[in-house]
Write a protein that binds this DNA or RNA. Structure first.
Lengths: 220, 220
DNA sequence: CCTTTTTGATGCAATTATGATGCAAACGCG
DNA sequence: CGCGTTTGCATCATAATTGCATCAAAAAGG
């Protein structure tokens, strides 16, 4: 599953540094250089995490934070100021975390990881009966034997796992995995679900919910 | 290069278990059974990583963490508690990672590797089947015979090794090795991967991950 | 019990991704 | 400068993925 991060920071060198560091860790980053751009991107794309400089042109970090909170988008504040005042105000406003410039890249990535983990990111290795999924390696095994999944199949499986034990609408699944609006009565989701079921023998686990969509049933 | 790990854990069975698991992976482990011992060892020896139980006799994990932070010694917290409070407190205080008891040994080693990787700790001599890589000398041998790699090829190999067993996106590899943004659909990464494969016969080790990028598969 | 709707199965074709190779620009070095 | 090397682009060949069309089976609703 692709993790998308928005970097809202007006100082380009810093923005670039962050982007490079996070890209190296495997995140997909998009940069915004002022508050307006950031708000626009937040609305149009679906990010998993947002790094916000407090002092941004046009729309400031606090305002953006409130906006992000509506969408349940976690935020880490970035700022040059170190005073407790700001830290408290940021966290009280609902920021997940806070990091002050200048910072070590390792600290940044650690905090990003921590936030994502807290937000129910998926564990490294997932077990579904006799199926094992290594998220990092993108390797899936059934009874210890490797099964090759295509990129879409893998992402779909991960998405279903993230939302396990919940009936998901087709358009919801489509939006989550394909990342756009599903037009009309496309059967794309059905097709991929079927292929997953077949490849991993998930007939009893990856269930149809009539007239709704699908549900991945995982017993505790 | 020898990687030394300090295990500060007062429950001996757990400490022994960890030591066994990590020793098997080739790390050199030292055990401390209370906070004082741990502080002492941290001061006298130079460890590459420290596993700290939060609840330790005499000096607790948080205090030790601050001490370790001064020495730029990365820390992974171990604890029985799973509440978010603690996790946040630990990570805020600067822990690199966090693992809750009970845990799988494979999870532990994965986290240890992840932290060391983030720290850029790669052993001096890397072995990949019949290929040997001397990191400092920048010399690569296949079946004992030297093979000349170009600078980019060598860096790429090292980067892939640092992130072994992980599927890496092309842009991620580009960012890590070339150090900038990969624009558009450049095939530069593919080319270099192919050259590496050919020179070192890594067809079975340096694998393509369709639609994603590449993965260096190293079996334990 | 029959009709309608929804879901499952399968073959196939268009698209897209990757591998291979030749070549030219850029680079390093004496 | 001139030479060899490195690097990345363009191209073609091959392989994989993906979504459509179609038909079969199952479920819902009278």
């Amino acid at each position: 599953m692709v993790t998308r991060i928005l970097i809202a920071e007006d100082e380009k060198p810093i923005s670039d540094l962050i982007k490079l560091a996070l890209t190296k860790e495997g995140y997909f980053c998009t940069a915004a250089y002022d508050g307006e751009e950031a708000a626009d991107l937040i609305e149009r794309e679906s990010f998993d995490l947002c790094l916000l400089d407090i002092m941004l042109p046009k729309i400031d970090g606090y305002e953006l934070l409130q906006y992000a909170a509506c969408l349940d988008l976690p935020v880490i504040f970035i700022t040059a100021r170190t005073c407790v005042e700001d830290r408290v105000r940021g966290l009280r406003a609902g920021a997940e975390d806070y990091i002050s410039k200048p910072f070590e890249c390792s600290e940044l990535t650690a905090r990003v990881e921590a936030v994502l983990r807290r937000r129910g990111a998926v564990p490294e290795v997932i077990r579904l009966g006799d199926v094992t999924v290594d998220r990092d390696a993108r390797v899936v095994k059934k009874d210890g034997r490797e099964v090759t999944l295509t990129a879409k199949e893998f992402d779909l499986l991960l998405y279903m796992y993230k939302n396990k034990n919940r009936a998901l609408y087709r358009h919801q699944i489509y939006a989550g995995v394909w990342g756009g609006d599903m037009l009309g009565d496309s059967r794309t989701v059905d097709l991929h679900i079927q292929r997953l079921r077949k490849k991993l023998s998930l007939e009893k686990t990856l269930l149809s919910v009539h007239k709704i969509g699908y549900r991945l049933e995982v017993r505790a």
